[in-house]
Amino acid sequence: MMLYDAGKIIAGLVIFAAFFTVPFWYGGGKTSEMPKLELTAQARQAGQCVEPKERMRQDHMQLLDDWRDAAVRDGNRTYTSSTGKSYTVSLQNTCMDCHSNKDKFCDRCHGYMGVSQLYCWDCHLDPTEEKTVWASTDGNS
């Protein structure tokens, strides 16, 4: 029951174990909660999103993709949701109108989920920057 090269073996095993257990000690034992998302007054008044919340949560990227294709390729700029309501197909004027607090809504969830910076705002107007975007040099968020 002896280890040859015990020093090297133990050092190697310690590195191995440390690497694979990073998630367990990284947060220092704190439990983690998702940051609260804020709804704007306008959104709260509407009470619901374009589609039911569960669907939005999982599928909003898909919806945006479908909207983009509908508007840009088919020229179809009204969307009838599964709840029967009609919405204008527009990222800036529909989604970001209700969710104009982008930094406390979209960005907050994306930050927690580790979704890397959206490139949409390279072209589309980011509502939180509306006032400064012309004059500033750092137009992207």
Partner: peptide
């Protein structure tokens, strides 16, 4: 539901 996924994974590692 990725938010649910992260809630589960984080609860595991904490």
């Amino acid at each position: 539901d990725l938010v649910g996924v992260k809630a589960l994974t984080m609860s595991l590692v904490t």
